[in-house]
């Protein structure tokens, strides 16, 4: 069989013909290569909208340039929007000297610690719950209304209750994040269990599995892709929720930093915090995707 089944390996593996400039253009996504170069219908073809790296660089550069220019020509009052230099200075200062008893890294570390605890507990309870709901009519019947009721409630709506129950310490934040992750993970695990093809279950039984083997050797690995998708979603929600929870009440964390800075009108610190939230959130998702590609290479190939 000719090896034309995998055009991507060819497109990225071999050097582009036609010299340096066309190769560079192709590399940044300004020109099309391989078979896509000869496609006459592009509008609506999903592959025509991929690989626009040049435009990503352009849009980010333009935003950055606008920011620099606006500060040089003082288009905006720095109280509303600080200069990039000021934000950078604060970043250097807080990463070395700290802010409110904690360095920048400790603030980030505290936020991440809360997420990992809450998310971890959410997985620990949510995944078995989802499995039970996917495997038993009684469990499905009992927990479906509960899960479906709590799922659309934004976790932040629980902040007042959680503070009344557990105060403003670590426990209340971890409890909140646990609630944020729990329903997402339960639903993801349930979907993963329900997605199994009956022929796989039947095949396993004719191959002589017992129930425990079926659960751990067939149903669990089969559900992993959906569980991992749920984990990515839950991670994103937890990150957003922890920052918001720290805005309300905390003594450390990125959200806490922003909240305190805002009461002193230190917009430079606020903006720095916002950028850090974005960067860390983006970083978490990239990490989860890398993990997914490594741990579950069979995703979408069933």
């Amino acid at each position: 069989m000719p090896d034309d089944s995998n055009p991507r390996s060819r497109a990225s593996g071999e050097p582009e013909p036609g010299g340096f400039i066309p190769a560079l253009l192709a590399r940044v996504g300004l020109s099309r290569t391989g078979e896509t170069a000869r496609k006459t219908v592009t509008f609506g073809d999903p592959s025509a909208a991929s690989g626009g790296r040049f435009w990503s660089i352009l849009s980010v550069s333009v935003l950055a340039a606008l920011w620099v220019l606006s500060s040089i020509y003082e288009w905006v009052n720095p109280i509303f929007w600080p200069a990039p230099g000021a934000v950078w200075d604060k970043f250097v200062e807080i990463s070395s000297e700290g802010y409110r008893n904690f360095t920048l890294w400790e603030h980030i570390g505290w936020s991440l610690y809360r997420i990992l605890m809450g998310f971890g507990l959410g997985c620990l309870v949510g995944i078995p719950l989802g499995f039970a709901m996917g495997l038993s009519r009684i469990m499905r019947g009992m927990f479906d209304p509960i899960v479906e009721f709590f799922r659309p409630i934004p976790p932040l709506a629980f902040i007042p209750l959680v503070i009344i129950w557990s105060g403003i310490g670590e426990r209340s934040k971890i409890l909140l994040l646990f609630l944020a992750a729990l329903w997402i993970m339960a639903i993801a695990a349930r979907a993963g269990v329900s997605s199994v093809k009956l022929s796989k279950i039947h095949a396993a039984y004719t191959l002589g599995v017992n129930r425990r083997q079926l659960l751990f050797r067939v149903i669990l690995p089969n559900a992993l892709p959906e569980i991992f998708t749920g984990m990515r979603v839950a991670m994103g929600v937890c990150w957003g929720t922890v920052v918001a929870a720290e805005l309300v009440a905390a003594e450390s964390g990125v959200g806490f930093m922003i909240m305190v800075a805002s009461t002193f009108l230190s917009t430079d610190i606020v903006v720095m915090g916002v950028i850090i939230i974005g960067v860390v959130g983006y970083g978490i998702d990239i990490l989860m995707r890398k993990l997914e590609a490594r741990l579950i290479p069979w995703k979408g190939k069933g």
């Binding site: 093809k197 022929s199 796989k200 039947h202 095949a203 067939v218 690995p221 992993l224 579950i296 190939k301």
Partner: peptide, 12 residues
């Protein structure tokens, strides 16, 4: 033993 049409292999 049973052999199914397709999709009954364990892709993991």
């Amino acid at each position: 033993g049973m052999v199914f049409q397709q999709g009954a292999l364990f892709e993991w």
